[in-house]
Simulated assay, not measured.
Amino acid sequence: MSLPLLPFPSGCVVARLVRREKRFFVHVLIDGKPDVAHTNNTGSMLGLLRPGAPVLLSPAQNPERKLRWTLELVWCGTAYPRGGFWAGVNTSTPNRMLEAAFRAGRLPWAEGYTAFFREKVRGESRLDGMLEGPGMPRLWVECKNVTMAEDDVALFPDAVSARGLKHLGSLESIVAAGERAAMFYCIQRPDACCFGPADMIDPAYAAGLREAVGRGVEVYPHLAVLSEAGIDLRSMWLPLV
Protein backbone atom coordinates (compact mmCIF):
# COMPACT_ATOMS: atom_id res chain seq x y z
CA MET A 1 0.00 0.00 0.00
CA SER A 2 1.38 3.43 -0.95
CA LEU A 3 1.99 6.03 1.71
CA PRO A 4 -0.47 8.93 2.03
CA LEU A 5 0.68 12.27 0.65
CA LEU A 6 1.12 13.57 4.20
CA PRO A 7 2.16 10.68 6.47
CA PHE A 8 2.05 11.28 10.20
CA PRO A 9 5.35 11.06 12.07
CA SER A 10 6.10 7.99 14.14
CA GLY A 11 5.05 8.09 17.75
CA CYS A 12 1.45 9.28 17.32
CA VAL A 13 -0.99 8.27 20.04
CA VAL A 14 -4.76 7.98 20.34
CA ALA A 15 -5.96 9.84 23.44
CA ARG A 16 -9.30 10.95 24.87
CA LEU A 17 -10.48 14.54 24.75
CA VAL A 18 -11.27 16.24 28.04
CA ARG A 19 -11.81 19.86 27.01
CA ARG A 20 -10.43 22.77 25.02
CA GLU A 21 -8.94 25.67 26.94
CA LYS A 22 -8.92 29.08 25.28
CA ARG A 23 -7.86 28.69 21.65
CA PHE A 24 -4.60 26.78 21.59
CA PHE A 25 -4.76 24.19 24.39
CA VAL A 26 -6.56 20.86 24.48
CA HIS A 27 -6.70 18.80 27.65
CA VAL A 28 -6.53 15.06 26.99
CA LEU A 29 -6.06 11.72 28.69
CA ILE A 30 -3.25 9.52 27.37
CA ASP A 31 -3.56 6.01 28.78
CA GLY A 32 -5.75 7.54 31.46
CA LYS A 33 -3.16 10.15 32.47
CA PRO A 34 -3.85 13.89 31.98
CA ASP A 35 -1.80 15.84 29.47
CA VAL A 36 -2.14 18.97 27.34
CA ALA A 37 -1.80 19.19 23.55
CA HIS A 38 -1.42 22.17 21.24
CA THR A 39 -4.01 22.98 18.57
CA ASN A 40 -3.34 25.54 15.84
CA ASN A 41 -7.02 25.63 14.87
CA THR A 42 -8.46 29.04 15.83
CA GLY A 43 -11.93 28.19 14.50
CA SER A 44 -14.76 26.89 16.62
CA MET A 45 -14.38 23.23 15.49
CA LEU A 46 -18.15 23.23 15.79
CA GLY A 47 -19.60 19.82 16.63
CA LEU A 48 -16.22 18.10 16.97
CA LEU A 49 -15.01 18.69 20.52
CA ARG A 50 -17.07 16.17 22.46
CA PRO A 51 -15.65 15.22 25.86
CA GLY A 52 -14.45 11.64 25.75
CA ALA A 53 -13.99 11.56 21.97
CA PRO A 54 -10.83 9.83 20.72
CA VAL A 55 -8.22 12.20 19.28
CA LEU A 56 -5.00 11.53 17.39
CA LEU A 57 -1.95 13.40 18.66
CA SER A 58 1.36 13.73 16.86
CA PRO A 59 4.62 14.24 18.77
CA ALA A 60 6.21 17.68 18.51
CA GLN A 61 9.13 17.65 16.09
CA ASN A 62 10.92 20.33 18.12
CA PRO A 63 12.11 18.71 21.37
CA GLU A 64 12.29 22.13 23.03
CA ARG A 65 8.63 22.94 22.47
CA LYS A 66 6.68 23.37 25.70
CA LEU A 67 3.78 21.13 24.65
CA ARG A 68 4.96 17.78 23.30
CA TRP A 69 1.75 16.89 21.43
CA THR A 70 -0.18 18.43 18.51
CA LEU A 71 -3.86 17.73 17.85
CA GLU A 72 -4.27 16.21 14.38
CA LEU A 73 -7.57 14.29 14.21
CA VAL A 74 -10.83 14.06 16.16
CA TRP A 75 -13.07 10.99 16.04
CA CYS A 76 -16.69 11.58 15.03
CA GLY A 77 -19.12 8.80 15.82
CA THR A 78 -20.45 6.47 18.45
CA ALA A 79 -17.68 3.90 18.66
CA TYR A 80 -13.95 3.77 17.95
CA PRO A 81 -12.44 2.32 15.81
CA ARG A 82 -15.73 1.51 14.03
CA GLY A 83 -18.97 3.41 13.82
CA GLY A 84 -17.51 6.76 12.86
CA PHE A 85 -14.70 8.57 11.08
CA TRP A 86 -11.75 10.88 11.65
CA ALA A 87 -11.93 14.64 11.05
CA GLY A 88 -8.70 16.58 10.56
CA VAL A 89 -8.32 19.79 12.55
CA ASN A 90 -4.69 20.75 11.95
CA THR A 91 -4.92 23.99 9.93
CA SER A 92 -1.40 23.62 8.54
CA THR A 93 -2.56 20.57 6.58
CA PRO A 94 -4.19 22.37 3.59
CA ASN A 95 -1.03 24.37 2.78
CA ARG A 96 1.17 21.29 2.99
CA MET A 97 -1.38 19.24 1.05
CA LEU A 98 -1.58 21.79 -1.76
CA GLU A 99 2.13 21.51 -2.45
CA ALA A 100 2.28 17.73 -1.97
CA ALA A 101 -0.69 17.13 -4.27
CA PHE A 102 0.74 19.48 -6.90
CA ARG A 103 4.11 17.72 -6.90
CA ALA A 104 2.37 14.33 -7.08
CA GLY A 105 0.30 15.42 -10.10
CA ARG A 106 -2.96 15.09 -8.18
CA LEU A 107 -4.49 18.48 -9.05
CA PRO A 108 -6.18 18.29 -12.49
CA TRP A 109 -6.86 22.05 -12.42
CA ALA A 110 -3.10 22.73 -12.17
CA GLU A 111 -2.03 20.65 -15.18
CA GLY A 112 0.71 22.33 -17.21
CA TYR A 113 2.16 24.23 -14.28
CA THR A 114 5.71 23.27 -13.41
CA ALA A 115 6.78 25.47 -10.49
CA PHE A 116 5.30 25.96 -7.02
CA PHE A 117 6.07 28.84 -4.66
CA ARG A 118 4.89 29.05 -1.05
CA GLU A 119 3.42 32.12 0.63
CA LYS A 120 3.86 34.73 -2.08
CA VAL A 121 2.90 38.33 -1.45
CA ARG A 122 0.42 39.94 -3.81
CA GLY A 123 -0.62 43.49 -2.96
CA GLU A 124 -1.58 43.60 0.71
CA SER A 125 -2.11 39.83 1.02
CA ARG A 126 0.21 36.89 1.49
CA LEU A 127 -1.33 33.99 -0.43
CA ASP A 128 -0.57 30.36 0.31
CA GLY A 129 0.69 29.31 -3.11
CA MET A 130 1.59 30.58 -6.55
CA LEU A 131 2.09 28.34 -9.59
CA GLU A 132 3.90 29.10 -12.82
CA GLY A 133 4.17 27.22 -16.10
CA PRO A 134 5.47 27.90 -19.61
CA GLY A 135 3.01 29.99 -21.60
CA MET A 136 0.46 29.94 -18.77
CA PRO A 137 -0.90 32.74 -16.58
CA ARG A 138 0.28 32.64 -12.99
CA LEU A 139 -2.11 30.77 -10.72
CA TRP A 140 -2.55 32.12 -7.18
CA VAL A 141 -4.09 29.82 -4.58
CA GLU A 142 -5.43 30.40 -1.08
CA CYS A 143 -6.00 27.35 1.16
CA LYS A 144 -8.67 26.77 3.79
CA ASN A 145 -9.37 23.88 6.15
CA VAL A 146 -12.95 22.56 6.28
CA THR A 147 -14.14 20.55 9.30
CA MET A 148 -17.88 21.30 9.38
CA ALA A 149 -20.61 19.48 7.47
CA GLU A 150 -24.39 19.44 7.62
CA ASP A 151 -26.79 17.31 5.56
CA ASP A 152 -23.92 16.00 3.38
CA VAL A 153 -22.71 19.55 2.61
CA ALA A 154 -19.21 20.57 3.69
CA LEU A 155 -19.33 24.14 5.00
CA PHE A 156 -16.82 26.95 5.52
CA PRO A 157 -16.15 28.86 7.71
CA ASP A 158 -17.03 27.53 11.18
CA ALA A 159 -16.38 30.99 12.70
CA VAL A 160 -16.52 34.54 11.33
CA SER A 161 -13.50 35.05 9.06
CA ALA A 162 -12.70 38.66 8.20
CA ARG A 163 -9.27 37.56 7.03
CA GLY A 164 -10.83 35.01 4.68
CA LEU A 165 -13.09 37.68 3.21
CA LYS A 166 -10.05 39.89 2.59
CA HIS A 167 -8.36 37.05 0.71
CA LEU A 168 -11.38 36.69 -1.58
CA GLY A 169 -11.02 40.36 -2.52
CA SER A 170 -7.35 39.82 -3.31
CA LEU A 171 -8.21 36.89 -5.57
CA GLU A 172 -10.79 38.96 -7.41
CA SER A 173 -8.17 41.62 -8.15
CA ILE A 174 -5.81 38.95 -9.49
CA VAL A 175 -8.45 37.71 -11.94
CA ALA A 176 -9.17 41.29 -12.99
CA ALA A 177 -5.45 41.66 -13.80
CA GLY A 178 -5.59 38.71 -16.21
CA GLU A 179 -4.16 35.93 -14.03
CA ARG A 180 -5.81 32.89 -12.44
CA ALA A 181 -6.89 32.76 -8.81
CA ALA A 182 -8.36 29.85 -6.88
CA MET A 183 -9.58 28.75 -3.48
CA PHE A 184 -8.41 25.29 -2.39
CA TYR A 185 -10.73 23.96 0.33
CA CYS A 186 -9.28 20.87 2.00
CA ILE A 187 -12.29 19.02 3.43
CA GLN A 188 -10.91 16.98 6.29
CA ARG A 189 -13.89 14.70 6.84
CA PRO A 190 -15.47 12.09 4.53
CA ASP A 191 -19.20 12.69 5.01
CA ALA A 192 -19.79 15.32 2.32
CA CYS A 193 -20.83 15.13 -1.31
CA CYS A 194 -20.77 18.87 -2.09
CA PHE A 195 -19.43 22.13 -0.68
CA GLY A 196 -20.92 25.51 0.13
CA PRO A 197 -20.33 28.62 2.24
CA ALA A 198 -21.71 28.61 5.79
CA ASP A 199 -24.29 31.39 5.50
CA MET A 200 -25.50 30.77 9.05
CA ILE A 201 -22.00 31.33 10.50
CA ASP A 202 -20.61 34.16 8.36
CA PRO A 203 -23.08 35.65 5.86
CA ALA A 204 -20.51 38.24 4.75
CA TYR A 205 -18.03 35.55 3.76
CA ALA A 206 -20.77 33.54 2.03
CA ALA A 207 -21.80 36.55 -0.04
CA GLY A 208 -18.15 37.33 -0.75
CA LEU A 209 -17.45 33.81 -2.00
CA ARG A 210 -20.42 33.86 -4.35
CA GLU A 211 -19.37 37.27 -5.65
CA ALA A 212 -15.79 36.06 -6.17
CA VAL A 213 -16.99 33.04 -8.15
CA GLY A 214 -19.09 35.36 -10.32
CA ARG A 215 -15.96 37.38 -11.04
CA GLY A 216 -13.91 34.40 -12.12
CA VAL A 217 -12.29 33.10 -8.95
CA GLU A 218 -12.04 29.31 -9.18
CA VAL A 219 -13.15 27.06 -6.30
CA TYR A 220 -11.74 23.56 -5.72
CA PRO A 221 -13.10 21.70 -2.66
CA HIS A 222 -11.19 18.42 -2.35
CA LEU A 223 -12.01 15.59 0.06
CA ALA A 224 -9.13 14.44 2.22
CA VAL A 225 -8.71 10.77 3.05
CA LEU A 226 -7.80 10.41 6.72
CA SER A 227 -6.36 7.54 8.71
CA GLU A 228 -3.99 7.06 11.61
CA ALA A 229 -1.24 6.61 9.02
CA GLY A 230 -1.68 10.09 7.53
CA ILE A 231 -3.71 12.20 5.12
CA ASP A 232 -4.27 11.70 1.40
CA LEU A 233 -6.38 13.60 -1.14
CA ARG A 234 -8.93 12.72 -3.79
CA SER A 235 -8.01 14.23 -7.13
CA MET A 236 -11.54 15.19 -8.17
CA TRP A 237 -13.18 18.06 -6.36
CA LEU A 238 -16.72 18.38 -5.02
CA PRO A 239 -19.38 20.57 -6.65
CA LEU A 240 -20.10 24.00 -5.22
CA VAL A 241 -23.67 24.66 -4.06
Rank of each mutant, 00 (worst) to 15 (best):
M1W: 10
S2M: 12
L5G: 04
L5F: 02
L5N: 05
L6W: 01
L6C: 02
F8D: 02
V13I: 12
V14Y: 03
A15L: 06
R16W: 02
V18W: 03
R20H: 08
E21F: 08
H27A: 11
I30K: 01
D31L: 11
P34I: 08
A37W: 06
H38F: 14
N41A: 07
N41F: 00
M45R: 14
L46N: 14
L46E: 15
L46K: 15
L48R: 15
R50D: 13
P51Q: 06
G52I: 14
S58W: 05
P59A: 13
N62Y: 01
N62G: 00
E64A: 10
E64I: 00
L67A: 04
R68G: 04
W69T: 11
L71A: 06
W75S: 01
G77H: 08
A79L: 05
Y80A: 04
P81F: 10
P81N: 09
R82I: 12
G83R: 13
W86Q: 08
G88Q: 12
N90L: 02
P94I: 12
M97Q: 05
A100G: 02
R106D: 03
R106A: 11
P108S: 04
W109V: 04
G112P: 05
G112Y: 08
G112E: 06
Y113G: 11
T114F: 03
T114V: 10
F117V: 06
R118N: 08
E119V: 14
K120Y: 11
K120A: 15
R122S: 10
L131T: 05
E132S: 15
G133I: 07
G133A: 07
P137S: 10
R138T: 04
L139Q: 15
E142H: 11
T147A: 09
L155D: 06
L155K: 13
F156K: 01
V160E: 14
S161D: 14
R163W: 03
L168K: 08
L168V: 09
G169N: 13
S173Y: 00
S173Q: 13
A176N: 06
A177G: 09
G178L: 04
G178W: 05
Y185K: 00
C186A: 15
I187N: 09
P190H: 10
D191P: 04
D191W: 01
D191Y: 04
C193M: 13
C194I: 01
G196Q: 02
A198D: 11
D199M: 00
M200G: 00
M200V: 09
I201C: 10
D202R: 07
G208P: 13
G208M: 07
R210I: 05
R210Y: 01
V213P: 00
V217Q: 05
V217G: 00
E218H: 08
E218N: 07
L223I: 00
L226D: 00
L226K: 01
E228M: 09
E228N: 03
A229K: 13
R234E: 12
S235A: 15
M236C: 04
M236D: 14
W237I: 02
L240C: 06
